[in-house]
């Protein structure tokens, strides 16, 4: 098992958001998590990646046999967990290149690989840039600094390609994208599907799943997975929306 989440409860600012979530993901699988706003979709990504203030109250998460919640944020990343942010952060003064080279080498070091030299890294970065259709000039700019919404999302996918994680969590990587950008993002993701790497695709809409075909679709509502199925479940959601979940799931939260 790549990831095994059992009875996960988590609160933000004293309010319970995740209320007993269970999820098992095997290597190579793509799981889509859909649900209305406020269901706890983004919270799940943050809890798994270890963001401050998003600690689990109870429950467990085994990641490749290790207790995920025992690890620091950076250790989780070094162990192969990657979160593509819904709102990537701008960091002026730190170049995209320097940022990605540091992360790639931090993860390589953990794996026992030699760090990449500047030229080796540049070569890889150029390829990745091309793959997500970002001009090379973006490597020299401050991390996400002044990038458009679509450019930020593509920059996330570029990092995913370079970091070669075991488990990728894509948090609303489709939000704010036009169809062309959506395709670039989806192609980037699909290029990384190698039968071993697993994905959690978090999305509000079915649209992205036309391009990234999931093995499983889960509906998250009010902090729990209320329904699971195959790709056809996503189509069903598109037709019916989330109204069938009842008013409770429409409550807004963090």
């Amino acid at each position: 098992m790549m990831l095994s989440i059992k009875d996960l409860h988590a609160s933000i600012d004293g309010k319970e958001i995740l209320k007993g979530l269970n999820l098992d993901i095997k290597p190579g699988e793509v799981h889509a998590i859909m649900g209305p706003n406020g269901a706890g979709k983004s919270t799940l990504g943050y809890v798994l990646s270890g963001r401050d203030g998003y600690e689990a109250d109870s429950g467990t998460a085994q990641f490749n046999g290790a207790d995920l919640f025992d690890l620091e944020v950076e250790e989780r990343a070094q162990a192969g967990l990657f979160l593509a942010f819904q709102y990537p952060v701008e960091i002026p003064g730190v170049s995209n290149m320097e940022f990605m080279k540091e992360s790639v080498n931090a993860i390589r070091e953990k794996r026992g690989d030699d760090p990449l030299s500047a030229s080796e890294f540049l070569k890889k970065a150029k390829e990745a840039c091309k793959q997500v259709d970002l001009p090379l000039a973006f490597l020299k700019r401050g991390v996400n600094e002044g990038f458009s919404g679509g450019e930020k999302k593509r920059n996330e996918i570029m990092q995913m390609i370079l970091l070669e994680p075991n488990l990728c969590i894509l948090d609303e990587s489709d939000s704010g994208l036009d169809v062309d950008a959506l395709q670039v993002v989806a192609n980037g993701v699909n290029s990384q599907r190698d039968g071993k790497r697993s994905f959690i695709v978090v999305t509000h809409y079915q649209r992205l799943l036309d391009y990234i075909e999931p093995d499983y679709v889960h509906i998250l509502a009010d902090g729990k997975i209320v329904k699971s199925g195959d790709a056809s479940l996503a189509k069903e959601v598109e037709k019916t929306g989330y109204a069938w979940l009842g008013a409770k799931a429409e409550e807004a939260d963090a």
Partner: peptide, 17 residues
């Protein structure tokens, strides 16, 4: 947090930031 989530150590992230 963003930098840590990319595997960069806390001390190195602070230096860079």
């Amino acid at each position: 947090y963003y930098m840590l989530s990319r595997g960069i150590s806390r001390s190195q992230a602070l230096v860079m930031l």
